[in-house]
Structure formats: structure tokens, C-alpha cells
């Protein structure tokens, strides 16, 4: 992926390709509600994440939980890539 080159170990989820796996390093959004929502749905830093699909919506799997999110929310999840 072209855009991965500038920051391989710390990318917003929306810059990653489908089927990427990684570890969540941070969750940041200017809208506090989104962060709260992700936290309460079990998306925390340090957890393993798989980006299953990115179109038409982003679909992530964290633990056993599968969540569909839009691009804005995806961009708030920062990931250290560990494989595809």
C-alpha cells in the first residue's frame, strides 16, 4: 500500500488495506462521544484488531466482536500493523 510507507507502525485505521491485522495503539477523536462509544463496545488500546473490509463500510473485528464503522470513526483508531 502506498500510504503505509510514511508511518508503518502507527496508522489511522482508514489508511490500512483490507485484511490488515494490528494492535490498537491509541483511540483519538475530537468528538468525545465516539471515543466513549468505542471504549464501551470493547475497543481498547492494546487489543488485537483485524480490518476485515473497508468498503462500503469499515468492518473491524476486535476479540470476538465484529463492528461496522464509518470512515470518521475508523480514522480515530490508530494501529500498529503486525501483518496481513
Amino acid at each position: 500500500m502506498v500510504y503505509q510507507s510514511f508511518s508503518v507502525d502507527y496508522s489511522p485505521l482508514n489508511y490500512l488495506g483490507a485484511k490488515t491485522q494490528g494492535v490498537i495503539t491509541a483511540i483519538r477523536n475530537k468528538d468525545d462521544k465516539i471515543v466513549k462509544k468505542l471504549l464501551s463496545m470493547g475497543v481498547h488500546t492494546g487489543m488485537h484488531i483485524t480490518l476485515e473490509q473497508r468498503f462500503p463500510s469499515f468492518v473491524i473485528k476486535v476479540g470476538q466482536t465484529r463492528i461496522a464503522i464509518d470512515k470518521n470513526i475508523a480514522s480515530s483508531i490508530k494501529v500498529r500493523v503486525i501483518g496481513r
Binding site: 463496545m41 468492518v59 465484529r66 470518521n72
Partner: peptide, 10 residues
């Protein structure tokens, strides 16, 4: 109002 965001547990 604010733009809507989408999240849904599948």
C-alpha cells in the same frame, strides 16, 4: 445538527 456517525455491532 452534527453529522451522523455510524457504528453497529454485527
Amino acid at each position: 445538527g452534527e453529522a451522523s456517525c455510524f457504528y453497529m455491532e454485527i
